[in-house]
């Protein structure tokens, strides 16, 4: 059989058109088309939709928490900037002495900030791990 004949046979089967008397080739094509139309045995896990929904919910909460922490950080930063500005404007001596304390204890401030960030990150990591485990069990 030529390619043209294959093309015609395939088109006829696709269109469900009247087909010529059975040949070996046609028989094979019919068998092939029937097999290709058989539903695939796919395994959709139980509660798949709920699991997807839980993951989206968990992500939403993480984003919402992140926004909250960023807002808090922005408020603290702005308050510190405003306070520093006011001190510099109205009480420069006090501002200089506070700056001196900050510089003297800089490692304490840096360490505290680092520790707080590390605790937050560890908490987030544990929460993510626990949520994933819970979702697997669910």
């Amino acid at each position: 059989m030529t390619d043209m004949n294959d093309e015609q046979l395939q088109r006829m089967l696709e269109e469900g058109a009247p087909i010529p008397p059975d040949s070996e080739e046609l028989q094979a094509y019919k068998m092939l088309f029937n097999a290709l139309q058989q539903p695939l045995s796919v395994h959709v896990p139980n509660r798949f939709a709920s699991r997807v929904s839980m993951r989206i919910q968990a992500k939403r909460e993480r984003v919402s928490n992140l926004r909250f922490y960023l807002l808090i950080a922005a408020i603290i930063f702005c308050s510190a900037a405003v306070t520093a500005g006011m001190l510099l404007a109205f009480a420069p001596a006090t501002a200089v002495s506070i700056l001196g304390v900050i510089i003297a204890k800089k490692w304490l401030f840096i360490f505290s900030a680092g520790a707080l960030t590390a605790i937050q990150l560890a908490d987030k990591w544990l929460l993510k791990k626990t949520t994933a485990k819970l979702m697997d069990e669910y």
Partner: peptide, 9 residues
């Protein structure tokens, strides 16, 4: 499909 048909024949 052509290749599968040939294998099937």
């Amino acid at each position: 499909r052509k290749m599968m048909k040939e294998k099937l024949v």
